[in-house]
Design a protein around this nucleic acid. Structure first.
Lengths: 359, 359
DNA sequence: CTGTTAGCGCTTTCAG
DNA sequence: CTGAAAGCGCTAACAG
């Protein structure tokens, strides 16, 4: 990696010389300081325009000690859930005058640590990061950047960061209970990659849901795959082989559920008549799928918005106190895939979110 | 916007003092200069570890004149086409040791100019930008940052930038010719928002396709909407009203085409038997849709890869010559929505791309 | 192989 | 209201 600053658009010195003032005055004009005479101001701005001068951001940052930029690091920008988070954070950042850049970590811990290091090295002022694994190394790397990072996803209680989380067990429980209340007796569960935080909480919610309605857990009803459409597509075949009497499926995310819908259609199995299907996340595709897909929203946009506010409150110095733990509560969204009437029973998502806040 | 550098992880001075060497030596060790004794090296690294020192990126950048970062600015990170471009650029950047950040301009020209200004102010070293409109203001803003920016999308010949483009007229023509060769006589066209560069080239390709097979252009067969699934969904109704004898539809992008498929299914119109449908872009959803969607790929990933290489070649100083104009050629991908046999006739996309290069 | 010195371009006291 | 001067933290000659 080699590079040299190519385009020299002039320095504040040259602007000062051209305007017949000192560099300090140019700086004051450009930063809208109160005490500058209109006449000087005009001369400076003329000179700036004439030279096409743009202040060097690097020098400015070194001097002032901040760069005016935050970043959002996500495992996969192709995932609609992270896109929703990104859009929400972007909205907050723009409104509050901050520059936001996105970093795609591709789920690699090395990349996550790199983002944290960028923060430590003052390449950015703040960071919102979503990690799938939350390793020890990751937690250790949070220490030195306290007060400038927000984690989306669960971290241990004592971790010195602001944190936004969602009770996804509760969400999984809601989904399973919904299927049972619909009359399903044999509910299959397609989980994502084992060992990740999301998959662990979903299987727990699945068990809780069964238990709450007095049904027994049957390992034959559970398969694992990855969190993609194709993952769901191939997993449902294995599931049906293990449990041909299946009458309901809970998929760990909407992408997998959509793969399930597609495969079931191919096999001539009617949804929801023969098998009811529910996913989790509430991505846009749910409303496009055939049949439209019931799901449990995990309020991605809402979490993004909150994370953005928390981070900026912190680095703008508005928030000084304890580390925040904000938890959002999932909500069931019923659509055709679990509705024998094939009627959408629910309004638009993401409104009136249930948000609980605790110290 | 207020912020102050919070976490002081120490300076190079402090490391030097602790290690009993000069700051210059610390700098040398950290930058892997050839001439450093193993002993000194060890002492320095110990001190670094002990303090948890991370070099200040801002100071380093100011001194060296580069920041090691490029950015990709796209109109909408929710659009799969831009995601494909982003992933490809990311891959190139990572391989060549550069940091990539994403900027979402939301299609706003202000945001585009802001990205260009960030480049001018050396916040980043290089920029890849995709603009839907390419206004005069935009072109003017390219001047001062020559040699550090690559535009994806057509720009006037004399524009002083490296440029990656796709012959989307040819793509649209291919799509229409394919429908005609299939036996379609009345081919509707659903275009995106009028006045944008993409929509202009698509309507032109549509006309070219008709002309090349000796068919006449009928304004009744054309409607406009926006480039979204819902846009296609509502547009097909209008189109069918204007032209009930429709037997083929070309949608200006896959998202719209998928909306069309959905609406046709609702109305009991069979695809491809009653109406054949083709889109453009080749997003992942094409393979998931029912029926699977024929399309014309515009090689988004390929364009992203090329743009990344061009930019880095330029700012690494490997490319010094004329401005590059790289043009990629669209390719037809036939799937069920235009296949009476309902057989996928084509291999995986994005391999063996046709790429033409000219001075 | 290592230390000294200068300075990247900007903002910000402190005088005036 | 404006100028002079200092210095943010780092790297890169240039000596030694």
């Amino acid at each position: 990696m080699v590079a040299r600053r190519s385009s020299k658009r002039g320095t504040i010195q040259e602007v000062a010389r051209l305007a017949g003032v000192s560099p300090a005055t140019v700086s004051r004009v450009l930063n809208n300081h109160p005490r500058t005479s209109p006449e000087t101001r005009r001369r400076v701005l003329d000179a700036v325009a004439q030279l096409g001068y743009v202040p060097d951001h690097t020098a400015r940052s070194l001097k002032t000690g901040n760069v005016g930029e935050i970043a959002l690091a996500v495992p996969d920008i192709g995932n609609p859930v992270y896109v929703a988070i990104a859009k929400a954070v972007h909205e907050v950042a723009a409104r509050r005058g901050w520059w936001l850049s996105l970093i795609s970590t591709e789920g690699s811990q090395t990349e996550e640590l790199r983002a944290l290091r960028a923060l430590a090295g003052n390449r950015i002022d703040g960071l919102i990061i979503t990690s799938l694994t939350v390793s020890q190394a990751f937690l250790r790397a949070l220490e030195p950047v306290q007060g400038r990072v927000v984690v989306i996803g669960r971290v241990p209680d004592e971790t010195p960061v602001d944190n936004v989380r969602v009770e996804s067990e509760v969400g999984a429980k809601l989904a399973v209970e919904h299927l049972i209340d619909l009359g399903c007796q044999r509910i299959g569960f397609i989980n994502g990659v084992q060992g990740t935080v999301p998959s662990t909480s979903r299987i727990e919610g699945y068990r809780l849901g069964l238990a709450s309605r007095g049904m027994e857990y049957d390992p034959k009803l559970v398969v694992e795959s990855d969190f993609t459409i194709m993952g769901g597509y191939e997993a449902i075949d294995r599931l049906l082989e293990q449990a041909p009497d299946l009458d309901g499926v809970f998929a760990a995310n909407d992408a997998m559920a959509i793969g399930v819908l597609r495969r079931l259609r191919e096999r001539g199995i009617r949804v929801p008549h023969d098998v009811a299907v529910i996913g989790m996340d509430d991505i846009d595709l749910c409303r496009i799928a055939t049949p439209t897909l019931s799901t449990v929203t995990l309020l991605a946009a809402e979490r993004g918005r909150i994370a953005g506010e928390l981070l900026l409150d912190r680095i703008e110095g508005r928030a000084q106190g304890e580390w925040q733990r904000v938890t959002v509560l999932p909500r069931l969204i019923v659509r055709e895939s679990t509705s024998l009437l094939r009627v959408e029973r629910v309004g638009p998502p993401h409104q009136d979110p249930n948000v609980g806040r605790q110290g």
